[in-house]
Design a protein around this nucleic acid. Structure first.
Lengths: 201, 201, 201, 201
DNA sequence: CATGAATGAGTCTTCATTCAT
DNA sequence: AATGAATGAAGACTCATTCAT
């Protein structure tokens, strides 16, 4: 009876809270976003919040977890592609597209500020691992195919691709006019230059 | 007599508080760093703190202000140099060196978390402006000299140089093994590739 | 049909809740025992609890009420006995036996902590009255028979018998090694000494 | 200057908070007594409370500690007395006198209700130990002198003296009319009967 | 000037109770 | 009848800031 319907309601409401928290964290930072604000944004009572999440930090972890999952899903969807270098650039394009949500950059900032907490550090490590283990094989592959430089190891190159993508996200947080097709094109160009076989003169 | 001596004491103590706050903010984040902790680190009473700064946020602003000033000073010291491209790369090297202080990366994170506050946003804008107006003329100069690509405008290129430097700093905050001569070399190489006249094939 | 069966189910479930609450109150105290814990112990949903009892405090009152009833029943069962002094000592023995349930002492503590609430104070008064009106006639009787001291009034002596029994229970709550046949014997001896015709030299 | 005066102010205010907490705990129980109520009673702001005590439970521990100290002091003052049995009875009288403060009984109840907490259990054990190690030597002494029964060991007898005193206190909590010279006399008589060499018949 | 005790607004979180299903 | 999701009032505790000494 109601038992079959409830899981859906539960999941929907849980997601609603996650969305509200995402918005608040991105706008106000971790400490700035009070549970009260999140509840108000989600349209629920304070008690309900703690029905779905045992603590404030646990929503943050849930958000991170979803992000990690999306990363995994994206890379899972690339299996079997031909040109490994294209996959890498597509990941950059994908990141730029995800950054279209103006909240993402703010959220990344927020997370950075509380990365000292062990729970969050652990979740971030998992997230980083998901991105690395998605990206690195393609980079290695491209190196073997000769379409990417080989003077740097695959792990190191992976780190630098991520570094540039993070820099792009950070820029977005500092300057919201930054999100333009032009800069998106420069991003791809910059990653391309980073990976290019032939270095500068 | 005391009138002539006190300004020195005052300045010294003020600097001591700034240093302590820098350490605490970098380690604990903005909300995590309590005025009590800062006072303890600085070796002063809590009342004294508010003799020197009207509020907690004002020390943060003072730190940012000093950083801005150092940026200005550095660029002021480059006047008259020959190779504009070298100045740009030296700025990257200078940034990497400054990032040797392990507190810097943590502090950058901290600032990011409270960048939503108007005062801090304003201070960051000033800081950004100092870096831009230091860097951009050299980039323009290098473009005219033909040693830097011209398919992107000087302001845009400036933005991207800063973006990569910020990415480098952010990486340092996330991964403390990142600080190595190798990565420092890659940083210079990456900026070089970004600026290179001839793009990838 | 269901109308005739349900009353039994209802009573059984009600008792189940009472038992669970007794266990929880004894172990965790009044505030420490949450309705959620009681429900979990009773194996029911939280809503069901409030079908049987209008509030948390009302279960406590129900438990007290059952205790009072048991006291009345016990004394009702003594009607017609010969030696009144033996009845008094048997009541002490009965109390010591009841205290074999390790939950009893904890529960007594719990009740003491909330004895300030008017409803509970009233229930405790009723309970006390049941014990008094069970005990006092036998004491009066024994005094008339000359087997119990008469320098104290029957009400006063009753109070002191209860005082010693309560002290015994309290001790049990504080020190779980206290429950031994030896101390049970001392209890009887102490009550005997309290009642003895001839006082100490 | 102010440094010599402050310790006195500090101690006085600390004591004021302890007194207020004692009153509130005795009247409302541990959970019933909110820090807000205690602060209002002490005439201080909520922040001040936590300047003097790190937590709510710590005031309770401070109160217990003071009680323990008073017990130690009392027994320390009895050194060298002639009749050990008199010392024991004087301790009973002292307890009865202390119980003149109507808050004591309520406080004892309150403490009992939270005795499950490890900190409090430990403090209670220390308190009990102070009373035992004050009382037991005198009982042993009296046994050797032949003025107290020897069929029970000194530790056991000590336990039972304490049991009766606790019963007296508990009675006081349940019935405030109980505090009368008559019952005080009965208390002494009852302890005397407990200790008497010659048992009943 | 320097101090640190005092303040109270604001935070996260708990839990008895209600009510739609 | 039974359930458990939803509620919000209330509580312990933190911390930037003030001010008397």
């Amino acid at each position: 009876m109601s038992r079959t319907v409830h899981p859906q309601r539960h999941a929907a409401r849980r997601q609603r809270i996650i969305d509200a928290a995402f918005t608040c964290f991105a706008r106000d930072g971790y400490d700035g976003a009070t549970t009260a604000t999140i509840c108000a944004t989600a349209g629920i009572g304070s008690g309900t919040f703690f029905h779905y999440f045992p603590s404030k930090v646990s929503v943050l972890l849930a958000i991170l977890d979803q992000g990690t999952q999306q990363t995994r899903d994206w890379f899972a969807g690339q299996t079997g592609r031909d040109d490994p270098r294209d996959v890498i650039l597509d990941w950059a394009r994908h990141t730029a597209t995800a950054a279209t949500d103006p909240r993402l950059a703010g959220f990344v900032r927020t997370v950075g500020a509380v990365a000292g907490e062990p729970d969050i550090a652990a979740a971030l490590a998992v997230d980083e691992h998901a991105q690395r283990s998605g990206l690195q094989p393609w980079i290695r592959c491209a190196q073997l195919a000769g379409s990417v430089r080989t003077d740097l190891s695959a792990p190191t190159l992976t780190t630098w691709v991520i570094l540039i993508l993070d820099g792009y996200l950070g820029r977005l947080a500092a300057d919201n006019r930054f999100s333009s097709p032009t800069h998106r094109r420069i991003l791809i160009d910059t990653v391309t230059r980073l990976l290019a076989t032939r270095g500068p003169e």
